[in-house]
């Protein structure tokens, strides 16, 4: 929070700041997470929200199952190719300003599930602000990520979100692995493979 210098004659209990900073302060201390919990990490997310670890201490306890009411997406667990369009749609339904935490090895990179069905990191397809490593991450790690998220929101958010307009590039790794392209060239083409074509390079 930026404190502006006191004006002469101003009472002690009044202080000045910028509107952006005030909005950031309010936003960062009342995050409404959207729990996109698809696998075992989701259990840890629930533990984080419950009384022992108590996410409420950090102002992020209001888990909402409607994306329209949320501003922090927590992707907890592996996302498969059938689920990814759902994830993208939910992300698009969340109103700005919004942030995304990718929780656990699977959401960040596919983890040990390097198979045809599992997306190798959600950051290939939606923007991710923070990655939480671990399999699963301890609740403390998620809380640490949340605190860092608050820090990030304080530093970057503006009231009209104009800084997002500049970011037109996807921030994750390129969605295509060269290895995968090689494999798909070597693989036999199946008749009637219409929508799921091998990616073109």
């Amino acid at each position: 929070m930026v404190d502006l210098p006191k004006q002469p004659g101003m009472p002690d209990n009044v202080f000045l700041t910028k509107l952006d900073a005030a909005a950031n302060w309010a936003r960062s201390n009342s995050l409404w997470p959207m729990p996109f919990a698809t696998a075992c990490c989701g259990i840890e997310l629930m533990a984080t929200a419950s009384s022992r670890f108590d996410l409420a201490r950090f102002g992020a306890e209001v888990m909402r199952f409607s994306p329209r009411q949320c501003d922090l997406m927590i992707v907890a667990g592996r996302v498969v190719m059938k689920m990814l369009p759902v994830l993208q749609r939910i992300w698009l339904q969340m109103p700005e300003p919004k942030w995304c935490i990718s929780m656990g090895a699977c959401a960040c990179s596919g983890g040990v599930f390097d198979t045809y069905a599992v997306v190798q990191g959600v950051d290939r397809f939606i923007p991710v602000d923070l990655y939480v490593p671990g399999c699963p991450p301890r609740p403390e790690q998620l809380i640490a990520a949340l605190i860092e998220m608050q820090d990030k929101i304080m530093k970057t958010g503006t009231i009209n979100g104009r800084e997002f307009g500049k970011r037109t590039e996807a921030t994750g790794p390129i969605p295509v692995e060269l290895e995968e392209v090689r494999r798909s060239r070597e693989a036999k083409i199946v008749e009637g493979l219409d929508i799921y074509q091998p990616p073109k390079m």
């Binding site: 190719m81 990814l84 997306v119 190798q120 199946v190 493979l193 074509q197 091998p198 990616p199």
Partner: peptide, 9 residues
């Protein structure tokens, strides 16, 4: 590892 279906989004 599939034929690239998991990356085609």
């Amino acid at each position: 590892k599939g034929r690239g279906e998991r990356h085609n989004f």
